[in-house]
Nucleic acid binder design. Structure first.
Length: 483
DNA sequence: CCCGGCACAC
């Protein structure tokens, strides 16, 4: 089109730019941008917004900001698009700064702006900020549409406030299937499987039709609550009562449900008998179950599939090596680790966030860059000593076994959530619950330690890991050690 | 006929 003599009009260009953003075609998007500038087509607000959106979706923040800054009379849409760009890249501070600037410039935020911000709070687990955004919505009398309400509901659920989420859900009069699904998934995430199942009965009564996402949420909820029979029944219901064709995600949930509960052979049967070819996700779910239940035979099958399907993914090689460790096959351990070293692979670093006084602080395992790192490390020492007094012995099995014992214990002491927890303990008032969001799953050692720490420091500690919530209180965890 | 925001899984 660009090469042709006929000049594309603005509408055409907007659509093309939008499409680039949608499929993540950054190079093509950049070419369009250059073409627009060169051909002296008037850069309308619509076109500028489309470009900001495109760059945002491609996570090219610098370019997004350049276009954004070049626009004189910004409307609410372009502000929101820029905000969404920051939100996508999890630039929480920038997103909120921009929001403040937007209001300083006399532009009133609308539902879309607020949805973006709320979703960002949900993503990073910023409960206080999320609540603040909620009050802004109320104060500004921004009309809550279903999407915004759903985003709010999700924020409360993902920030560990399941009661707040339930309250919003109960008060909503315009529940669509998306909102039901959000509520069910939220309950599942908190280990409230029974409550999630009850919602299915309710949805049937009110006559809303569940969809495939509903069942992913429900199966997931069953899985986390150990409701094996109920999960199987759900799968049956989905197929026979609601005539939905199971997708690979549903089979994945079933493998997870069975595997997690220790029915590994049954889980493997599902994989062998399902009409879809297993992907990496399916095998990694099985692998996780094998690790949990110490089944090296099936674990090796799964790990081999993963290394074959995604050779570039170091996590699977790590798992493979751990499987061999479990089976005491040290030559194989050495082989896998050597192969990884040759390919220059590294484990994805653990990362934990904690929100304190409206700021989200990030900690990476072994991190020394936080401005208050010295105080944090002192606190970690204090935690370690108190744990020892309480009779805690570091479980070092989560760390690869070729480092010596002392080093392993140190690595665990500096797992990112311990740093975030230490920061939370020193920077919030006694008794305040500590909320942490981390990118990986909680390891066994940290789980045990956190239970004890909640008792030692008399704090509720709420940890959201890659998959679910753990509410630690007075020496116990809401997951009942089943996760 | 087109500039922006929600729900699932990894």
């Amino acid at each position: 089109m660009i090469e042709e003599r006929v000049k594309p009009n603005e509408i055409t260009l907007v659509s093309l730019v939008v499409e680039c953003g949608f499929v993540g075609a950054l190079q093509l998007g950049k070419q369009l941008h250059i073409y627009i500038v060169r051909s002296e087509i008037c850069m309308s607000l619509a076109l500028a917004t489309a470009l900001v959106d495109m760059y945002g979706k491609c996570e090219e923040i610098k370019n997004a900001k350049e276009v954004f800054d070049s626009v004189k009379n910004k409307d609410v849409m372009i502000w929101s698009a820029m905000n969404a760009a920051y939100a996508r890249t999890r630039c929480t501070d920038q997103a909120f700064d921009l929001f403040v600037k937007m209001r300083d410039n006399g532009v009133t935020p609308n539902q879309v702006t607020m949805t973006t911000l709320i979703s960002l709070c949900a993503e990073v687990g910023a409960h206080d900020m999320g609540k603040w955004v909620h009050t802004v919505i109320d104060r500004q009398v921004i009309e809550m549409d279903t999407i915004l309400k759903t985003a709010l509901l999700e924020m409360y659920a993902k920030c560990g406030d399941i009661d707040g989420a339930s309250k919003l859900f109960r008060e909503a009069k315009d529940r669509d299937i998306g909102m039901w699904n959000t509520m069910m998934a939220g309950l599942g995430m908190h280990g409230c499987g029974k409550e999630a199942l009850e919602l299915l009965s309710e949805i049937e009564r009110v006559g809303v039709r569940p969809n495939d996402i509903t069942f992913i949420g429900l199966l997931h909820a069953c899985s986390h609550a150990g409701l094996v029979e109920e999960g199987k029944l759900m799968f049956e219901k989905m197929v026979h009562k609601f005539a939905l064709v199971p997708k690979i995600e549903h089979y994945g949930c079933m493998v997870d449900l069975l595997g997690r509960a220790g029915h590994l052979d049954e889980a493997y049967e599902i994989i062998k008998n399902m009409p879809i070819r297993a992907n990496a996700i399916i095998w990694s779910v099985l692998l996780a179950a094998c690790k949990l239940h110490q089944n090296a035979v099936l674990g090796e099958i799964a790990a081999k599939q993963l290394v074959y399907l995604e050779p570039q993914n170091c996590g699977y090689n790590v798992s493979m090596s751990n499987i061999y460790v479990m089976a005491n096959r040290w030559t194989d351990v050495a082989r896998v680790r050597k192969a990884m070293k040759n390919k220059g692979m590294k484990k994805e670093p653990g990362l934990s966030c904690i929100e304190v006084n409206g700021y989200v602080h990030e900690f990476i395992m072994g991190d020394r860059t936080h401005p208050e790192i010295k105080k944090v490390n002192d606190m970690v020492s204090d935690m370690r000593n108190k744990l020892k007094e309480a009779g805690y012995r570091a479980d070092t099995s989560a760390v690869l076994k070729n480092i010596d014992e002392e080093e392993k214990e140190t690595a665990l002491n500096y797992h990112s959530e311990k740093l975030a927890m230490a920061y939370g303990l020193i920077s919030t008032a006694p008794g305040t619950p500590i909320r942490i969001v981390k990118n990986l799953r909680v390891c066994n050692g940290c789980h045990t330690a956190t239970k004890l720490l909640s008792k030692i420091y008399q704090r509720g500690i709420i940890v959201r890991d890659r998959k679910r919530f753990h509410h630690f209180r007075n020496g116990t965890c809401s997951c009942g050690d089943y996760w």
